[in-house]
Design a protein around this nucleic acid. Structure first.
Lengths: 103, 103
DNA sequence: ACAATAAGTCAAAAAAAGATGACTACTAAC
DNA sequence: GTTAGTAGTCATCTTTTTTTGACTTATTGT
């Protein structure tokens, strides 16, 4: 493993940091869906064919931790939790759309 | 799990496809450098601290195969090979710059 | 009490990405 | 013919991501 101490490598392209926030199999799709309406766990699970709870949970957690989604707990009968795009999350949407147009 | 046989998973966000083309530790940086001048293997190796031949070779190969870079062999004394941004590669640059501005 | 829905967690296995070391092919200079 | 420079390849190992199965917590309905 070569446990190196000092700070080595780290490709330092500034776009890299933002790319990492949306990297992953489900994150771009989840962000795209979040534009239309607040997201819920079970509804994502139904919508994203081929996904599973763990994948959704991990993606939502990371998107929340990196500040692209905000989690809102709604204390009601069946217990609802909603995820909203943050300001930064919204800022990302047009960029994702431009990527689509290049492809 | 719900192992459905028909066509499984594949997150079908259109931006995903383009994101995959620039995914990886070195690709965004390489594209960024390609804007300034044609790229050469050994010069990339020197410029990208923390990289190695295999990483550079793999990145260049993938960027070429996906049509973002074009490889040009220059038969001269020490054998030169240059990589140029394609039209699609160029189209990606402003999008990468926008990503930086969000971060 | 028991099952169902919603929203997860934990651990482990499998697959993909990244890192490391040794080796190849061509030309050119000495 | 040995050394040096450029541009790689191949096999292996490690790390990270993704997938899979089993279990948890809370509330509602019967």
């Amino acid at each position: 493993m070569t446990t190196n101490n000092s700070n080595e490598n780290e490709a330092t392209c500034p776009a890299q940091a933002m790319l990492k926030l949306v990297a992953g199999k489900w994150k771009p799709e989840i962000l795209r869906l979040a534009v239309e309406q607040p997201l819920r766990f079970s509804s994502l699970l139904r919508t994203l064919k081929g996904s599973n709870k763990q994948a959704i949970a991990a993606a939502l957690k990371e998107l929340e931790e990196t500040g692209l989604l905000e989690k809102v707990v709604i204390k009601q009968k069946p217990l609802h939790i909603e995820y909203y795009l943050t300001k930064q999350g919204h800022a990302l949407i047009p960029v994702l759309q431009q990527l689509e147009n290049i492809g």
